[in-house]
Write a protein that binds this DNA or RNA. Structure first.
Lengths: 108, 108
DNA sequence: GACTTACGTAAGTTTAAACTTACATGATGT
DNA sequence: ACATCATGTAAGTTTAAACTTACGTAAGTC
């Protein structure tokens, strides 16, 4: 089972999310992924390692290159984690919303 | 619309996730939430602010206390964001699988 | 009105992690 | 065998953000 919290840690960085988003384009090499991003190629390599360990990316070696792609297992893990809050939260939020509505609208 | 990336940034910290998880217990004051956690009460306050801005928590003032609860909007935003990868990921995976299949066909 | 409780925030410190440079490795081409 | 390409990782630096202490404020209590 994938560790959902590890996934959230992985997705908690903007640059890493950029790398992750570029994985949608299909199988990409590290150099390709680094192109356009304003961080160095080794930095991207490190981000990919984190994504891989989190279960958000898979890698396949092809010759001298390493092609990365999205791994759905990490996504699924994060989804389940979020869903765990859904039921409980809905009740609590409803109660809070009713409390807020009863009071005068007050920003901040 | 809630900013999904802001939600992910918010959930990217372990301590903040701990606070968030404690919100499941229902409406809790800052002092209550801080109890048990190994960070100071102001630290929890700061985490709650981040959660609130991200759309993961709502607050309701009751006398001198401020009761926090889970806000489902942030959760929903994160879910949608993740779902945006789901389809693409499947496509990429398919493409990868086909590439693999083409390779598999020859050797062995 | 003084005192307490509960809290948010400012200011400064500490720490974790993101990043860079430099280097080592393994595959491919000549 | 040598050169090149693509990459991962070690080591050290830099930076962002998590944290603490100190303070100010608003609501409740005596």
């Amino acid at each position: 089972m994938m560790n959902a919290e590890r996934v959230l840690d992985a997705l908690g960085d903007p640059t890493r999310r950029l790398v992750f988003k570029r994985l949608r384009e299909g199988n990409r090499s590290v150099t390709e992924l680094a192109r356009g991003l304003d961080v160095s190629r080794p930095a991207v390599s490190q981000h990919l390692k984190v994504l891989r360990i989190a279960g958000l990316a898979v890698v396949r070696t092809e010759g001298t290159r390493r092609l990365y792609a999205i791994d759905t297992r990490g996504i699924e893990a994060a989804r389940s984690w979020l869903d765990g809050f859904w039921d409980n939260a809905l009740v609590a939020f409803k109660a809070a919303a009713e409390g807020e509505a009863a009071k005068e609208r007050k920003p901040r």
